[in-house]
Design a protein around this nucleic acid. Sequence first.
DNA 1: GTCTATAATACGATAGAC
DNA 2: GTCTATCGTATTATAGAC
Lengths: 212, 212
Amino acid sequence: MVRSHASKKQQIRDAEVTQQQILDAAEIEFASSGLKGARLSAIAERAKITTAMIHYYFENKEGLYKAVLQRPLDEVQAMVGQLNLDHLPPEDALKQVIRSAIASEAANPQRQMLWFQEACQNKGLYFKQGNWWELYEHLLKILERGMVEGCFRPLDPILTLTHILGVCIFYFSVQENWKHLTPEIDRLSPEMVSKHTEAAIDFILAAVKKTP
Amino acid sequence: MVRSHASKKQQIRDAEVTQQQILDAAEIEFASSGLKGARLSAIAERAKITTAMIHYYFENKEGLYKAVLQRPLDEVQAMVGQLNLDHLPPEDALKQVIRSAIASEAANPQRQMLWFQEACQNKGLYFKQGNWWELYEHLLKILERGMVEGCFRPLDPILTLTHILGVCIFYFSVQENWKHLTPEIDRLSPEMVSKHTEAAIDFILAAVKKTP
DNA sequence: GTCTATAATACGATAGAC
DNA sequence: GTCTATCGTATTATAGAC
């Protein structure tokens, strides 16, 4: 990673660093405004470069958008791979999924907005192109395994997976609106996220566990 | 409601009808694209009027946006008022809330997107101005009453309300993305919505009911 | 690899005829 | 009450200097 000396006016030249700065800034802008609403000028300003650099690295707005969507998918897949969910009892695997999902949302609250924007504005066109199927199947299998082994009660796996992720993620979706209902609660503070995590585990496990 | 005769070129003149057409079209456009991403030209085209009419009735883009956000709030409040939730046992009241929330989302799938856009793009600025507190309190009271009466187990009411609505609504939020994972499932079809409703009631009640 | 300057278009908003 | 025509600015994208 070689970088030339900085001139008086120009930034330090480092293609990789510049690209990351652009991607970071773009993720925030696309998450809040979506593909149509995003402004390249806003991204450039945040990344401390010019709009010309965006076109140099990513050709155009849409190219940048696609690149932004790719990163979260890669990271989620890497994380799930490390969890070794298949070697845990279904109940423990489910708890891990809940913890990871919430921790991931808390660490990057803008990412779920990114996917919602992709859903609303773009009808999931680029979501479709990412390889989410593998992850989706992986999570379904935990539920199915739990039902077979008898620790979970009989449930529709697809609906139940939706409901479980709803419990974990909806909390973050509504935070920007609901914070005005209860200004004294900071839903993104570590304490509140921790309470949400424990309450979510409690709620979901009670919902799916077979009662003796 | 008087309407003059239609000229060759112009629309039938009826202020109320025109305003509703604009509001309907704007709701769809703002839901999918948010305040920044929405295009007045797209709204005008869908409403079959010109952008000049939008300015005539709503002054500017922001005025139209505020008017669009007001309508769902009014409707939700009217619906909840009719349910008479306070006179039902907590468990039945909760079931009614679940049914109504899901039915309402299913009837207007774009409305939750509207609030989501308000959250991410506008940081809930106009959400704040609507009177949502009353509804929020109303729902919290159902949970608190259920705990006092002993049919629900001890829970954090605020978190639990978030989790409950997450189960109901997340289903619709992800539909535009997840439909690409399971193209054979139409999540907005009456059959699937009905399955979702029953599964959600089952899931939530199991999560909150006190086990004897 | 980064910038400045600028072209080309898109968009919100207004004026004025009907 | 509705439209057409148009103004001013914002925005994407490109050309070319360094």
